[in-house]
Every structure is written in structure tokens, then in C-alpha cells.
Amino acid sequence: MFGVNSKSGATARAKAAKQQPVVPVLPDGEDALIKIRNLHFSRGRKAIFNGLSFDIPKGRVTTIMGPSGTGKTTLLKMIGAQLAPTKGSIEVDGQNVHRLRRKALFELRTRMGMLFQSGALLTDLTVFDNVAFPLREHTELPESLIRHLVLLRLHAVGLRGARDLMPSELSGGMARRVALARALILDPMMIMYDEPFTGQDPISMGVLLDLLRTVNETLAVTSIIVSHDLQESLSISDYVVIISDGVVVEAGSPDQLRSSDSPWVQQFLRGDPDGPVPFQYPGPTYQEDLFGESTHD
């Protein structure tokens, strides 16, 4: 069935992917909080999603994986309704996020937390004020209570002592942990983490994993993790979705994936450079580029 791939060339692979999109079904007894249906989206001429469909179970930790540049960040932005698809729909908690009016959308967003790949802290506020920001914007809580809540969250990410620093004085890993504290402060129903583990030392990594798990278990927060740290994310996920070339290639529990015989999954789990998942961004073949006629004059 993957015989086409022996011809090599990214397009042949892309076609193979388009012909066999897996539309995964959630395990029995799981409710979907987010339903992604037949999502299409392009950036310029490059199609990013070609009919992406899957569900994200409520109250569970779901990891989304895929080669760099497949559109995982883009997908999170679409779930947050910052980008609109060209076709297809995303339902969060029963509401089509791209059909909502601004007010309803903002209301929904107060229940969504998002941890950006870059942290996205407000650079003119201190760490403390950054974490307090959503509380001050959306609640009328007294300052003493805000202080209490903020310190609690900062303590959980190990940065209580850094509360008076400015974001420019933080390291990348610290900034991401502050952003995590901020994403948690409103007790959202779901949190999207874009690469939470990058730039963390082994200790912070362990703490973060614990934290993510605890947040998910104690608060029943639906967690969506985009990550390349395979072992770490598999260890805390209930459900894993692998995306490539704009469609889901595999989905299931970590154990199901480990025992999957799909070459996509095996390549991804082992980290082989060669296989059905292209490592190269689509373009002319290496040989053409090096020895072929010059394309720009």
C-alpha cells in the first residue's frame, strides 16, 4: 500500500497521504470537547490542511505530533479562532468557533488557555503583572486575592522568586513557565500548549510534566500538547494524534501507537530521517537544485 513511495519524491508521498486519510474515532466512553471536521487551509500556494478531521477528548491529555512545519501551531491558532479555515469547521464545546460573534468568542476564549511557542509575555509588565493580567482584565477580585492566586501559580512553576523581573530578564525556558502560569490563572476548561518542553532542563522538565498531569487530573482540564519531545509527551498523554501533509496519519493511545505497524508512525517514533514522512520542505530535488539549470537569473 505504500509501494508508491519507492518512487520517491515528495509529491508521490503527498498523494499517498491524500488517498488514505485516517478519520479516527475516539475510544468508547470518551466525549469530544473539540471536533475538527474536514479542515482545509492554505498559506499562499502551499496547502497546509487537506481535510483534517479528528476529535479531542474532554478532560484528557492529547498530544499532537507531526514533522516541523506541518501546521501544528497553525491548528492551535485555528482552534483559538485566530485564523479561519478556507473550508471545514472546528467545534469547541459545541460551538463552531468561526461562526461565533466577537462577544461570544471572547467569552469562550476566557475559558481557553494558550501557551504560545514564544511565551508571548507582555514585555512592558513584570512577571507578576503578566500573570495577574487576565485576572485584572476579566474579574473584579481584590488585589490581595489576586496576589495570592498569582503567587500560588508562580510557585507551582517554580518562579515565585522571579516575580519582580521583567520578561526581558528571563531565559526562554523561564518565560515559557511564566506563560504557563498565566495560562492557568483563570482556571480554563482547556489549555493548548505549543511546545511546552523546549528549552527546559531535566529538572524543570520533570516538574512541568508533573504539573501538566496534575492540572489535567485535579482540575479536569482538557490539555492539548504540541510537542516533539516524544518520550515525555507519550508518558503523560492519553491520546496521540500524528499529522502529516495536512491529514491525520494515525491516532490512538500511546500504547496503540507504539505497537502500530504504520510506517509513518514507526518512522516518527524512531526518528528515522528516511521514510514516508518527508524531512525536506517540498521543493525541487536536491540533484536538480545543485546541478540542474539555474532557476533564477
Binding site: K77, E107, T110, A120, L121, F133, P134
Partner: peptide, 18 residues
């Protein structure tokens, strides 16, 4: 421009702040 480049504007939107 820098707020845009560092995703602060997107961050505000995701925190439901206009």
C-alpha cells in the same frame, strides 16, 4: 510591530482581551 512579532497581540486576543 514588535508586539506583533513576539506574538503579544495574538496572546492578548487569546486571553480574550481586544
Amino acid at each position: 510591530g514588535l508586539m506583533k512579532a513576539t506574538e503579544q497581540l495574538a496572546g492578548l486576543e487569546m486571553m480574550a482581551v481586544d
